[in-house]
């Protein structure tokens, strides 16, 4: 399968007072189309920093990051905004839906910013994530699982190449977790590549590769089978 993301010796350092924090250290990573990679590690290990780099929300201190054939480290701010809009989808632990607008409008929002109004596409994506019939509901009227489905639909609306999920099931009830992860697996069949950052080893096993991060470095790679054993 073709490579969608290639990170080479990616570093992200920043200053905290007189101290230099090495959030990512010479990280190499390859992600293929239709692949799920899980990133595990404790808080502060660099999971979110990695997602921010891949999501073009932040620029690395050094190293190269090539996404869909484009070296994003060479892009200027406006080009990064444009690139992010067309190639990256984000999902967060707390869903972060806009409370004042309904399900349909939340999903439509990225299209509004991209000036690509397409109501039909919004309805299709909502159906894909299992929210058909709930278009007019406000976020507060939804369960946690449905809120995360809205967030996934919002992330998918611009046809991204990579979906970045930061603790996507962290705030969900036990019975809501598996359907969301199953949905991710379903999406990879369309060629979507997904990076999941999680503490939850049970969810991490959905990844084809499971990378363990510590102090901004990959210290181990696990398979879904070995991670199940690690959980005990």
């Amino acid at each position: 399968m073709s490579v969608i993301l290639q990170a080479e010796k990616l570093c992200r350092y920043y200053r905290r007072g007189s101290e230099t924090v090495k959030a990512l250290q010479e990280l190499d990573l390859t992600l293929h189309k239709g692949q799920i990679i899980s990133i595990v590690g404790r808080s502060g290990s660099g999971k979110t920093t990695l997602l921010n780099q891949v999501g073009c929300l932040d620029t690395p201190t050094s190293g190269r990051l090539i996404i869909a054939g484009t070296d994003v480290t060479a892009l200027k701010e406006k080009e990064l905004e444009h690139f992010r809009r067309n190639h990256i989808g984000f999902i967060f632990q707390l869903f972060y839906l806009i409370p004042t607008i309904n399900v349909l409008e939340n999903v439509e929002l990225p299209l509004v910013f991209a000036r690509r109004h397409n109501r039909q596409k919004v309805l299709e994506v909502l159906e894909l994530v299992g929210l058909a019939g709930k278009e007019k509901l406000l976020p507060k009227q939804l369960s946690g699982g449905d809120m995360q489905r809205v967030a996934i639909a919002r992330a998918l609306i611009n046809n991204p190449k990579i979906l970045l999920a930061d603790e996507p099931t962290g705030r969900l009830e036990k019975e809501e977790k598996a359907p969301i992860m199953d949905l991710f697996q379903q999406l990879t069949k369309e060629g979507l590549a997904i990076i999941i950052a999680t503490h939850d080893l049970a969810q991490a096993r959905y990844g084809e590769r499971i990378l363990e991060l510590k102090d901004g470095r990959i210290i181990a790679e696990h398979s879904p089978e070995t991670i199940v054993r690690l959980r005990g």
Partner: peptide
């Protein structure tokens, strides 16, 4: 922040 992450430019 979410709007920026989901495609909103400055």
């Amino acid at each position: 922040g979410i709007m920026r992450a989901t495609g909103a430019a400055k």
